[in-house]
Computed example of a mutant assay.
Amino acid sequence: MFQSKRRAAAARQKRNLIVYSNPDSIIAEQFRTLRTNVQFLNGGKKSTLLLTSPSSSEGKSTAAANLAVSMAQQKESVLLVDANLRDPHIHFIFKIPNDKGLADVLTGQAELKDAAYQTEIGNLAILTSGQLDSNPAELLGSEAMEKLFQKALENYDVILIDSPPVLEVTDTKLLANKSDGVILVIGEGKTAIEKATEAKKALEFAKAKIYGVILNEMK
């Protein structure tokens, strides 16, 4: 029974991290194309990139994880941050601990260098959500968040942020305003045109620079 659960968990990880488990697939190539487009938009500079979606269950976290892996495979130093403090997923995708992470760093209970989890995938490090005991919006909009970005960019080429759905909480607007660029993930067959348009307007109102849209095929 225990072995079957481990096999099931490994299978789910392979499905989620297709760029890592099947680098020759069409999907992996699409993420490499996305990675290249982001590099052109950034002009080769260090940057902070946020991924969000209009609503939940649109594949945003999986897209963020695969883009992070693709960038790390290109020898970029990447920090993937799970800023969805209300409903985190990144530690599930990578099957890593979440005993300390972003919330702990922002509240001064941990240092970034101690909280970041170094993976075996290229130069990819992950900062999970950590243990939350206060208001997420206050933390994410705080001066501590800005300082974390500044500190992280001293050691990483790219900070990739998995944020909450933009239409559900205010957290994402705060983060989008602090990021160099935003990618909107839309679930094919799930997101109504009205919601996609509303999400775009919300990001523009936050003065976010929208790099583009990922149309995620929902299965």
Results as ranks from 00 to 15, higher is better:
T119W: 00
T119I: 02
I126M: 02
I121M: 09
A116L: 03
I126F: 00
G122C: 05
L112D: 04
Q131L: 15
G141A: 02
L127E: 08
Y117P: 01
Q131R: 11
D133P: 00
G141V: 03
L140P: 07
Q118D: 13
L132M: 10
L127P: 03
L127H: 08
G122T: 03
G130D: 15
K113Q: 13
G130S: 14
D114N: 07
Q118E: 15
A125P: 09
L132F: 12
A125M: 10
Y117V: 03
L139Y: 06
T119E: 00
N135F: 05
L124C: 15
E111F: 10
L140K: 09
L127R: 11
N123V: 01
A125F: 08
E120A: 14
E143H: 09
L139D: 12
N135C: 06
A115V: 07
G141T: 07
A115K: 04
L132I: 15
A125G: 11
A116S: 13
A125Q: 15
Q118I: 13
G141C: 01
L139Q: 10
K147P: 03
Q118Y: 05
S134H: 06
S142N: 04
S142G: 11
A144V: 08
T128Y: 11
A144P: 04
S129E: 06
D114M: 00
K113C: 03
G122V: 07
P136M: 05
E146W: 01
A116I: 05
K147A: 12
S129A: 15
N135R: 11
T128H: 10
S134M: 13
I121E: 04
I126A: 02
N135S: 09
E138S: 13
A115Y: 06
I121N: 04
Q131N: 13
L148Q: 12
I121T: 08
Q118C: 05
I121H: 09
G141N: 01
E146I: 14
A144F: 02
T119M: 01
L132C: 10
A115N: 09
L132H: 09
G122N: 08
L132Q: 13
E138W: 05
M145P: 11
K147N: 15
A144N: 12
D114F: 00
A125L: 07
N123D: 10
A116R: 08
A115G: 05
P136E: 10
T128R: 11
G130K: 15
Y117A: 00
K147H: 09
K113D: 12
S129C: 08
I126R: 08
E143Q: 13
